[in-house]
Design a protein around this nucleic acid. Structure first.
Lengths: 174, 174
DNA sequence: CTTGACTCTATACGCGACTTCAGGGTTTAT
DNA sequence: ATAAACCCTGAAGTCGCGTATAGAGTCAAG
């Protein structure tokens, strides 16, 4: 289980910032970054990391830059960017274009989405609360399957509201 | 594209409540309920609808009850139930047990989840807003890929925070 | 020299609620 | 009579972000 640090057996066992390892194997990178080994390979396949050097036996050899790249990815994810968006940002940057304006726009849009989503959830919260209160009053409502649900009024009775709800939320990850 | 109402060519063209169609084909049910044809078959496979009668040629023939069932499903979805939960509720009801207590519990739990989710999103909203403000002050920050993101501080700098965030949100569909 | 921890590739699986496809048969309108 | 529009089944694909598995090679320590 425990991952051994086998190149940097110098003085400090773990995260040793004093000796910048010029070539880390994937497990070390995983250890340092907190990103799983499989995820690292997945990122590489997805074009987020570029192809690292290889040892004679084919092992990936990373230099420290990858840690910054991973930190970048994590921060961007934290801000709500999808891996796809992140990939675009990186490739813009590598083409020399500053992606920052673009990024700013995305963040602004996401901010609007989050606001919207919060409002929806608050509405939903009120709806659920109201429903529970109604149920408490009614006790046991009549109905074929579950009177509680059947007597529930939807605020948005457009066809297939449920489908839409479930779907777009999952899609935006909000 | 336009779906024609072919059994109820009586007086009213569309939703004709005066002549209860005892047998609707799947397209009509779709039309009336707003649930897609494929979704209807999917619900049937998933055990949410039971097996409808069939015409000689194998077409599904629904009676009006299916519309109530679908309304039930939509409302339950609207309240945040998964199709799996809905299936359980229905099967409880068909066994004669009143699922309402169960349902009440689920709603209460979901209410708690929604509250939690709202809090998370509000935090996220503050985070995004703060970030945008910082960016506006800084103008153009230095950095390799996108200074804006690189200079962003994460409030929760635990490893792989992003992964966790993205994942559980998608999971709860909240 | 063996063991066990590590690495490699390629492929499949997981979630949830559907949608799409392939390859038919049926009904209805003109 | 024919074409459009509907219906059938069963399987596979979609979305995002990885995780898990299988089968094999590599490396360091005891």
């Amino acid at each position: 289980m425990a991952i051994r640090n086998n190149t940097a057996t110098t003085i400090v066992g773990r995260t040793n910032r004093l000796s910048p390892r010029t070539s880390m194997k994937i497990g070390e990178v995983s250890q340092e970054s907190g990103v799983g080994v499989e995820a690292l390979r997945f990122y590489e396949r997805s074009g987020l990391l570029g192809r690292p050097a290889r040892s004679q036996s084919g092992y990936r050899l990373y230099d420290e830059a990858v840690l910054e790249r991973l930190a970048f990815i994590r921060k961007a994810q934290f801000l709500g960017f999808s891996l796809d968006e992140i990939r675009h940002i990186i490739s813009d940057a590598e083409k020399g274009a500053s992606p920052c304006d673009n990024v700013r726009g995305i963040v602004r849009r996401r901010l609007a989405e989050v606001s919207e989503r919060i409002k929806e959830l608050q509405r939903h919260h009120r709806e659920l609360t109201r429903t529970l209160e109604e149920w408490d009053e009614v006790g046991r409502a009549p109905g074929n399957i579950c009177g509680l649900i059947e007597t529930t009024e939807m605020q948005n009775p457009s066809p297939a509201a449920g489908r839409v709800v479930q779907k777009k939320l999952r899609k935006n990850g909000l």
